[in-house]
Write a protein that binds this DNA or RNA. Structure first.
Length: 928
RNA sequence: GCCCGGAUGGUGGAAUUGGUAGACACGUUGGACUUAAAAUCCAAUGGCCAUUGCGGCCGUGCGGGUUCAAGUCCCGCUCCGGGUACCA
């Protein structure tokens, strides 16, 4: 029978599940360790081999940590809301809950076959009312909170209301869109509606009329991170800018904390960089420019206040509120036309035409508050309404965009910064602007001669003294649009009374989705929930018809895992104080600007509320690379049904067609299988080479349409889960993208069969003995333990697998069948290949699972080498090898090397200049 | 454009962080076992030259440099992948 993986894996999977081997509870006698995989969306297509890659790695780590004595929390669940199930519902009428349930079932079956050590008792699903109750609850807290800049945290809105009643808002420093100052008297005199409108400007979850990314094809708005290149990330549909009333989360209030938090977490530099760019902090100054013959002032933002003397014009975003007021009658028509044109352009058009310079003169002039110069005010869509103040001073000499604009419209260019030691030149002859912050100021009043950095500080100080501006920091990070005009998501716990939104009482939660007759928007463009009958509170007030976006449910799930069945609170104090936060988080880096920002924000908010106990949710994060597909191709001679083998294809005019990789074995096509694959190939003819049809191949994305999807079930069927686990790890470094090549899996399968043979003979008799192990055997074992420990801790799983192979090869050569060696070997292997390890463990007479067997300790004494084989080089070139006792001194080594008979040939007629000896490394003899 | 990664045999990849380049596998070739195949085992396998023996030369995308010694460090490129995109 030999290594019968099928029965072994079935047996142990059942054992783990029946005995709840991986169930964990709070155990204060042990240190905790929290290993988490990114929340999967259960898609209808099921898993392909790329999906479990991260799960296998995290599972190895979780199992290893258990053996190192940690109490390991390793849960799994489902991010169950999502567009695919809803799109399917629209097409077929099948309720998304039904589709989702079905997909989850399939997903679970696939996961179970791989032998993961999840504590399934902690499973959560975002569409489960017991779960989303707390998503809704958090939303209510966000609604009832404001961000106090003085304490730098979220605080209850009630406190703010009291303060308004006492002192108005003059003493409040908040993250807010409220600009007008009011007194307590004014506040108390306001109507309920007026008060609520003002509070809305402070709430962290707030309703606002803003420009949104509207995707007509999906019938919903999208968050910034859900739009890529002007198209929706899901489905690739065009996205427009549209002004709509939407729920938003005031994540911008947390921009600085999100930035600072990156310093203390162990993520890859590239991911931190992605987040830093997304947050986009820039320091500069805001300066007020009076408008000639108007009372209005234009506030501009600049990172280069030192270049104020180089400003030659101003530019407003077409949407800027002052455009209408300041435009002169003569320019009115042109300006209106431009504004209209800019407004109607789609996001994609705008982005595609970035290099085209467009704009219009308003006829108005701004006044440079430092120089008194009059600057023509233009509008142009290269200035964005959403960033800074939507207005700039243009310094064409030192900003490439202003430069292009000035060139195009023939506006003056004045140089005010120069590289040290250079002479000024005429900017009108320049090919490009000088944007660098390196340099010295010229033609700039009191800052002339200063270095840029000092000049910036000096100007900020000056404008602050003059009261015409101040140093400010701007962030690119925008508030997150939090409502979707879709059905399949969490309903908002919000109702409207006289048009004013109010949160439901917490006792009303969870608010479940209503039944609807169709999953499409209504005829008047209302979201699907508007179709529901009786979508109102028991008092009869209408409920919010938007639903929450995908990231709502996935932003706090790691906290819920700590205490998933708690129906009184999100999670208990006790649970969060024990589990705290995620120690190791594994997933793809495509979540850099989405989930990973939102979850950090969500966590910080809960931290401010005193619920979360750590202000960063994910301490260490590893991005697993993607597994790419390896596509196979056949070459059809154009216009025929004849296929020519790869190496002969050049002789014909051919067309390369994807062929199902299951019909190809080592690039050789299964001709019969191919003919039966699709009806059109039934009568296919072939031109063979050496009697075979050789296919071409290419590495590309794994996808159904490319017929290169490898699904794990087939491989498990043929080789078993342990082989699959080992092979996925063996493919290469975890964080690198790598192509999938099924061929190599044979190698790890052979390894497991060889391993098996260390324990059993051909007749399945256990051949493990109690004989004392030799030093050589012990060295093999301890070398392995040391290496595996090191590799797991460094997430170098691929080299770990080869270490196992080396050890098993060596033990096979030694014909080693000793328990003293083979028992620790089984434990060491058990995190990688848990099924076979359990089987071996039980064959060795153990009755408990290997899961909690302590990880063996390696000992230095077994690793000692008596001799070392030195590579001896001459002038850096290795010439021969010399075995010497390991404990020789440098001088003795040098002597031995020079005296070795192989050395003579290289020393002949040469002078020894120098001998470099690095003990246990190398000997290098320099001759000339 | 800007910001990150990366480039090592026919293939996936290793290399204790400056110290024997190509571990471990796949593939290929040859051999053993077998009536045969599968499975298994053994051997060879970076390139070129030599092969009568030793052996020699070249070699980690390209060009320079530092060093006794460079895949690894520095400078300058090329190509590939990812992120971002008028963010003032």
């Amino acid at each position: 029978m030999g290594y019968d993986f099928k029965s072994i894996e079935k047996k142990w999977q059942k054992y783990w599940s029946d005995n709840k081997v991986f169930k964990v509870d709070i155990d204060k006698s042990k240190p905790k360790y929290y290993v988490l995989d990114m929340f999967p969306y259960p898609s209808g297509a099921g898993l392909h081999v790329g999906h479990p890659l991260g799960y296998i790695a995290s599972d190895i780590y979780a199992r290893y940590k258990r053996q190192k004595g940690y109490n390991v929390l390793h849960p799994m669940g489902y991010d169950a809301y999502g567009l695919p199930a809803e799109q399917y519902a629209i097409q077929t009428g099948t309720h998304p809950a039904v589709t989702t349930e079905k997909n989850i079932k399939r997903y679970r079956e696939q996961l179970d076959k791989i032998g993961f050590s999840f504590d399934w008792d902690r499973e959560v699903r975002t569409n489960d009312p017991k779960y989303f109750k707390w998503t809704q609850w958090t939303f209510i807290q966000l609604f009832k909170s404001w961000y106090n800049k003085k304490t730098d945290k979220a605080e209850p809105i009630d406190k703010l209301i009291k303060e308004f009643g006492k002192n108005g808002n003059k003493n409040i420093e908040a993250a807010t869109t409220q600009e007008d100052i009011f007194t307590a008297g004014q506040w108390n005199a306001m109507s309920e509606k007026e008060q609520q409108d003002i509070l809305m400007n402070y709430r962290i979850a707030y309703l606002s009329e803003t420009m949104v990314n509207w995707c007509p094809a999906l019938g919903t708005v999208l968050a910034n991170d859900e739009v890529k290149d002007g198209l929706s990330e899901r489905g690739g549909h065009p996205v427009e800018r549209k002004k709509m009333k939407q729920w938003l989360l005031r994540i911008s209030a947390y921009a600085q904390r999100l930035l600072d938090g990156l310093e203390k977490i162990d993520w890859t530099d590239s991911l931190k960089e992605i987040q830093r760019n997304w947050i986009g902090r820039s320091e500069g100054a805001s300066v007020f420019f009076p408008v000639k013959n108007h009372d209005e002032k234009i506030e501009i933002f600049t990172t280069r206040p030192d270049t104020l003397w180089g400003a030659t014009f101003m530019v407003l975003a077409p949407e800027h509120e002052l455009v209408e007021k300041i435009t002169t009658p003569e320019q009115k028509e042109k300006v209106e036309k431009y504004v209209q044109w800019a407004k109607n352009r789609s996001e994609r058009e705008r982005m595609a035409e970035v290099k085209n310079v467009t704009g219009e003169f308003t006829g108005a002039y701004g006044i440079n508050p430092l120089t008194g110069d009059e600057l023509p005010i233009w509008i142009a869509d290269y200035v964005l309404s959403g960033y800074g103040t939507g207005a700039i001073m243009a310094v064409p000499a030192h900003d490439s965009r202003d430069f292009a604009f000035a060139k195009h419209f023939n506006l003056p260019i004045i140089q005010v910064v120069i590289k040290e030691g250079e002479e000024p030149t005429d900017p009108s002859t320049w090919e490009e602007s000088y944007d660098s912050k390196e340099g010295v100021l010229i033609n700039s009043g009191f800052i002339t001669g200063m270095k840029v950095k000092d000049a910036i500080k000096a100007v900020i100080k000056k404008i602050e003294e003059m009261g015409i501006g101040k140093g400010t920091v701007n962030y690119r990070l925008r508030d997150a649009i939090f409502s979707r005009q879709r059905y399949w998501g969490e309903p908002f716990p919000i109702y409207y009374k006289n048009g004013i939104p109010y949160p439901l009482d917490e006792s009303e939660l969870p608010l479940e989705l209503p039944e609807v007759d169709s999953f499409l928007p209504t005829e008047d463009g209302e979201p699907p929930l508007a179709r529901a009958k009786n979508w109102k509170t028991k008092e009869g007030y209408p409920l919010e018809t938007n639903t929450m976006p995908g990231f709502a449910g996935s932003s706090g799930y790691y906290l819920r895992y700590m205490d998933p069945h708690n129906d009184k609170e999100y999670f208990s104090r006790e649970a969060v104080e024990y589990w705290r936060n995620v120690d190791l988080y594994l997933g793809g880096d495509e979540h850099g600007t989405g989930h990973l920002i939102y979850a950090r924000f969500w966590n910080k908010f809960l931290y401010d509320l005193g619920l979360a106990v750590e202000d960063e949710p994910f301490m260490k994060l590893i991005n697993q690379g993607k597994i790419q597909g390896r596509s196979s191709f056949v070459y059809r001679i154009q216009g025929t049904n004849k296929f020519v083998s790869y190496n002969l294809r050049k002789q014909y005019k051919t067309q390369a067609l994807h062929v199902d990789i299951n019909l190809v074995d080592g690039d050789v096509l299964d001709l019969e299988g191919f003919r039966n694959w699709l009806p059109e190939y039934k009568d296919a003819e072939f031109i063979l080479e050496d009697g075979k049809y050789i296919c071409g191949h290419e590495v590309e994305k794994m996808s159904k349409s490319k017929h290169n999807v490898q699904n794990p079930d087939d491989l498990i069927d043929r080789y078993g889960a342990d082989t699959l686990r080992l092979y996925e790890m063996f493919l290469g470094p975890l964080d690198q993208d790598k192509p999938w090549d099924t061929k190599g899996i044979e190698g790890v399968f052979r390894f497991l069969k060889r391993l098996w043979k260390l324990y059993f003979d051909e007749n399945d008799n256990l051949i493990v003995t109690d004989e004392k192990a030799t030093d050589t055997e012990l060295k093999v074992l301890h070398k392995l333990i040391k290496k595996i420990e090191h590799d797991i801790e460094n997430f170098s799983f691929n080299t770990g697998v080869s270490a196992f192979m080396i050890a098993v090869n060596e033990l096979s050569d030694l014909k080693s069948h000793k328990k003293e060696i083979l028992e620790p070997l089984a434990i060491t292997l058990s995190s990688y290949a848990p099924h076979i390890a359990e089987e071996l463990w039980s064959a060795l007479g153990h009755e408990n699972s290997i899961t909690y067997a302590p990880f063996p300790k390696w000992e230095e004494k077994y690793l000692k080498e008596n001799t070392f084989t030195y590579p001896v080089s001459f002038n850096g070139k290795t010439r021969f090898k010399l075995e010497l006792p390991a404990d020789l001194s440098k001088e003795e080594i040098e002597k031995a090397a020079l005296e070795a008979k192989e050395s003579q040939k290289w020393l002949e007629g040469k002078t020894v200049r120098k001998v470099i000896v690095v003990p246990k490394r190398i000997i290098n003899i320099v001759v000339s």
